[in-house]
Design a protein around this nucleic acid. Structure first.
Length: 271
DNA sequence: AGTGCGGCCTGTCCGC
DNA sequence: TGCGGACAGGCCGCAC
């Protein structure tokens, strides 16, 4: 899935095309996603104007007069804007048809994403209420991360992938930012110095911003709204590079499992 | 309270 | 060619 850069790229792609548009109809072909797509969603947005499109963590928020549609792309989700009449392909689960004759189409083979209606303030919804810091905002700093890590025994990789601490960092960018800051992913979060957390925060920001600039990372099936691939996968330094030489010291990149996810690191550069 | 794990789905790849 | 298993960008809910 789409981690933060891919969601941000999707946001920038769809927002100018759908903001202030009016929904003509909604077609739900497969309602069984992470949570069911409800008749209430269809009823609440049909005939209504899209007032704004935003991002919080890896969720896209499409706001309407009476509430918000939360879209999460899960592991394999994709959103595209298409002209009306574009043929439906396998796993094209939901269409939001706009009165300007374009269609916002949700596609998700693995169906762990969602298209969810929430009434009232979306930030109070169960999905968003407990989310942590946005990594590109000022409140996310080495000092804050260090403070939050006090007493934590979990690995630093699990820690920065925990959405209650900081959002948007998935498996790819966790691996990449730990490599850039020279921190071993298995190291206990509570036993890392303030200075190292400062370096980690810089690395996280750099990696995310560079990935957004590159249009995201294209692995397997991710693509931007226009169908263009992202190019950040060419810049990956450790992710899926097991057994290949480290770009800095030429040691073999190693792979291990942390929190049931593949973790890649350089045994020489990372401590 | 913090942590680890199983589960949700489908698709792809690899070894036999 | 077919089959089973491992694995894939996330995150919820539950047991300890």
């Amino acid at each position: 899935m789409p981690e933060l850069p891919e969601v941000e790229t999707t946001l920038r792609g769809i927002k100018p095309l759908i903001k202030n548009s009016v929904v003509r109809s909604v077609n739900v072909r497969q309602k069984q996603l992470r949570w069911p797509v409800t008749p209430r969603l269809v009823e609440r947005i049909t005939g209504e104007k899209i007032l704004d499109v935003k991002r919080r963590a890896k969720y896209l928020l499409i706001s309407f007069r009476h509430g918000t549609v939360l879209i999460h792309l899960g592991m394999s989700g994709r959103l595209r804007i298409l002209p009306l009449g574009e043929p439906v392909r396998k796993h094209d689960h939901v269409d939001v048809v706009l009165t300007n004759n374009s269609v916002l189409r949700f596609h998700d083979p693995r169906r762990v994403g969602c298209v969810l209606w929430v009434d009232g303030d979306p930030l109070c919804s169960p999905q968003l209420a407990h989310l942590g810091l946005e990594p590109l905002e000022d409140a996310f700093s080495g000092q804050t991360l260090f403070n939050l890590a006090r007493g934590r025994r979990t690995s630093v990789k699990n820690f920065i992938m925990n959405g209650r601490i900081v959002v948007g960092i998935g498996n790819i960018y966790a691996n990449e930012s730990l490599f850039r800051s020279g921190i071993l992913p298995s190291r206990s979060a509570g036993r890392i110095s303030l200075n190292r957390y400062r370096r980690l925060v810089v690395a996280i920001r750099e990696v995310l911003i560079e990935a957004i600039y590159a249009g995201g990372t294209t692995l397997r099936d991710y693509a931007t709204v226009t169908g263009e691939p992202g190019y950040f996968d060419q810049a990956l330094e450790v992710y899926e590079r097991e057994g290949r030489p480290c770009v800095r010291c030429a040691s073999n990149i190693r792979r291990t499992i942390i929190g049931q996810r593949s973790s890649y690191f350089c045994p020489t550069c990372q401590r």
